[in-house]
């Protein structure tokens, strides 16, 4: 089941695999350190430890994501999808199991990547046409919102983009099916001054939510920006555009983050089901 990078791959993809291989072969990952982190994480469920574990195993995700890179999606996006798998594996990993974490995590990460492609429906590969459509819609929606001071209708988008409404709808369908959560949101580091400013009141709301909904660990595990968006949209009564303006990102970006976060939270409610 588990594939570990070998010398052959290293030759094929020098930059790529070199990184992953060193890490995976245990030369630079201190296994004892990883085990210790896991032990502490299992006890405390401390998000900071979780983040450290993610960082430690990112090379594995990068390596696995590369196997899917010829399907028309940016590697960066695939790494983010794979990271969701990594997070799940980290959360479920049981130290009692006598397996290495990388062995345990690989099927989960690959499963997440496969599902990412399968979720797009019938096409395994994202047609370039749709990617381009999505990009141009992104731009048109942003421009129109600016012009008319509200979110545009499908008809308005179609007119402006010189597309049929059908095409716009197709793009809309695509936009979230292909969405990936950004796990690189700064978690309060030097890049994140804006995010931590008005946190106080919002955190109280979030705490209530976590308590009520028993979603505590799941929500606590979300990157800070995703948690904020979740709170502002569902409890703060702000629209996507308002949140976008506040966080300095586009409305469609907010939409993607929101949808992906919900997908993560719903995980486990339904089995991994396929048409048929």
């Amino acid at each position: 089941m588990t594939e570990v990078p070998n010398a052959g791959r290293v030759h094929q993809e020098p930059d790529a695999a070199a990184n992953g291989a060193t890490q995976l072969n245990g030369r630079s990952v201190d296994r004892g350190h990883a085990k210790d982190l896991f032990r502490r994480f299992v006890e405390t469920r401390n998000p900071a430890l979780r983040e450290e574990l993610v960082g430690l195993h990112l090379p594995l995700v990068e390596y696995l994501a590369r196997r899917f890179r010829n399907r028309g999606e940016p590697l960066e996006d695939l790494v983010q999808v794979g990271t969701i798998g990594l997070l799940k594996a980290i959360d479920r990993f049981d130290l009692e199991r006598e397996v290495e974490f990388s062995t345990y995590a690989t099927p989960t990460i690959v499963g997440e990547l496969k599902r990412h492609f399968r979720d797009k429906g019938w096409a395994v590969r994202v047609p370039r046409r749709l990617q381009e459509l999505n990009l141009s819609l992104n731009k048109v929606v942003a421009e129109l919102s600016q012009e008319i001071g509200r979110s545009p209708t499908i008809a308005e988008i179609a007119t402006k983009a010189h597309l049929t409404e059908e095409e716009v709808l197709e793009g809309l369908d695509t936009s979230n099916a292909y969405a990936v959560v950004s796990l690189d949101a700064p978690a309060g580091g030097e890049d994140a001054p804006a995010v931590s400013e008005h946190i106080g009141a919002e955190d109280e709301g979030l705490e209530a939510l976590e308590y009520r909904a028993s979603l505590g660990p799941l929500i606590a595990g979300l990157p800070e920006r995703e948690r904020r968006i979740l709170y502002l949209r569902f409890f703060g009564g702000m629209t996507q555009s308002q949140i976008a303006a506040r966080l300095g990102i586009s409305q469609m970006h907010v939409s993607r983050l929101l949808n992906r976060t919900l997908a993560v939270l719903r995980e486990g409610l339904l089995e991994d089901e396929e048409i048929g």
Partner: peptide, 24 residues
């Protein structure tokens, strides 16, 4: 089955577009 939710979403999207719902 969750596998069919895309169909439910797509139908909602198409109908809402006809009612002039905005993108958001």
């Amino acid at each position: 089955s969750g596998a069919y939710l895309a169909v439910v979403r797509a139908a909602a999207t198409g109908l809402a577009a006809q009612l002039q719902f905005t993108y958001e």
